[in-house]
């Protein structure tokens, strides 16, 4: 069945965001809202966790919040 989604939560999409600028987990979740991806909240958390573990991005604290980022 076709699931409507205009945003896809993929490793490549996350990689592109993190190369552009450091982001918190909350920033990333805003980019992949469930109403845009068609995924459930639980799926979103699980998939994003797996992607971040694979990408293993650099981490830094900005304004006391952990941000992830990647360099090309």
């Amino acid at each position: 069945t076709h699931i409507h989604s205009d945003v896809q939560l993929t490793e490549e999409a996350v990689r592109r965001y993190l190369i552009r600028k450091p982001m918190t987990t909350k920033d990333l979740l805003k980019k992949f809202q469930t109403k845009r991806t068609g995924l459930s909240s639980e799926q979103t958390v699980n998939v994003l966790a797996q992607i971040l573990k694979r990408l293993n991005p650099e981490r830094k604290n900005v304004n006391d919040k952990m941000h992830f980022y990647l360099t090309e």
């Binding site: 918190t24 987990t25 909350k26 805003k30 909240s41 979103t44 958390v45 966790a49 573990k53």
Partner: peptide
Amino acid sequence: SSSEADEMAAALDAELNDFI
């Protein structure tokens, strides 16, 4: 809702903290 977003962020942070 923002509280759902907060819960999701907390769950994701917890998953990733286990990984560190």
